[in-house]
Design a protein around this nucleic acid. Structure first.
Lengths: 189, 189
DNA sequence: TCAGAATAGTCAGATCCTTGAGTATCATGA
DNA sequence: TCATGATACTCAAGGATCTGACTATTCTGA
């Protein structure tokens, strides 16, 4: 029951096609959940069968036809019920952590390379999330926006994503610096 | 092939029984990977079949017999190969993020309650990881430890876990404060 | 003394996520 | 003009993870 509520939450802001929805859950852009198109389409079918979303066919001349989905009242009710349950916290589960855990017994330069890669990737995502936040906020200050906007959910989740990638970047840079320092010292022996 | 390397990495520091290993991967303590006992036992069986770990039976009087496992040279080689491959970064995938994403359309006090719960949980984990780092470091300063210890992998991964839970705590507190502020404003209207 | 937790595992089933392929049409750039 | 990419989906199969139950003994606290 995980993706289920994520799809409902993604449909709160606009009526979307499965394709657009799938794009929103793409690895590059997703700011509060990630899923592959196959999962999104399958979940949409289940949600529609359960009456939590309703789809309507949109006929297009120049493009393939598509189905647009929106959340039903039952769907809002389901989200409400979901918000009332305590979700169990998930744990960091990253291959990079495993590689760093083993860093003393494998070639250090390989691990340093992995850390540099990740630091660069995380830095790019920091840029991306930063820009996204700017766009959502518009010309308002953050305080103003958070106090007066009628819709702050996407902004708050994006803030979490930003902090996550900042932490990834800082940690990766820190670890890489330490391992490099140790390589220098080791070379001197 | 995810848990595979995590188990190998966990066995680098000591020969462990499946039971001890499973405890290390428990939700409460795990600092670089999490898995259930069932997964750990199954993975150990596969690793032993593939010659990456070797197990020996230890007969006990007062307790059930157990099998102790250690990494073989082949296992170290596999870790080496793994460290040379770029792992794809994983994305935050938290039910709490979905709940916050939907916070404007569901009862705000429910979401505030979820955020308070998570902040308290994260604060407890910060304490836990802080203490763990102190224990690993012993009486050395962090700089001293990181420069001269022969084994820093577990320390570095624990640092990441600490930063993760600090970020969770701060974000949850921040969101809860904003939602409370908005409730006050809304009540005035 | 008696329930409950800890030690040391195993088994089956369901769900969730990923890999990989495939269909069909249309717009865009070299 | 021709390959590439975007739109808009679908299907099958495998791997990973989680839920829940089960065995059997021993130590510990109320």
């Amino acid at each position: 029951m995980a993706l289920r509520h994520a799809v409902l939450a993604a449909l709160l802001d606009a009526e979307l096609s499965g394709y657009q929805l799938a794009k929103n859950f793409d690895a590059g852009v997703a700011n509060f959940w990630h899923a592959l198109p196959q999962q999104v389409y399958a979940e949409l079918a289940r949600l529609e069968a359960d009456g939590l979303v309703s789809g309507r066919e949109v006929v297009q001349d120049t493009r393939p036809n598509k189905r647009m989905f929106k959340v039903t009242d039952t769907g809002i009710g389901e989200l409400q019920r979901f918000a009332a349950t305590t979700a169990k916290p998930t744990f960091l589960r990253e291959d990079l952590l495993v590689q760093v855990q083993a860093c003393d017994l494998v070639a250090a330069d390989e691990v340093i390379a992995r850390l540099d890669e990740r630091a660069a990737y995380a830095a790019a995502k920091v840029e991306l999330f930063g820009g996204l936040l700017d766009r959502i906020r518009g010309d308002r200050t953050e305080a103003e926006f958070l106090q007066h906007s009628t819709r702050i959910g996407p902004y708050l989740t994006c803030l979490r994503g930003l902090a996550y990638e900042q932490a990834n970047r800082d940690w990766a840079q820190h670890c890489a610096a330490i391992l490099r320092e140790r390589q220098k010292n080791h070379a001197r022996d």
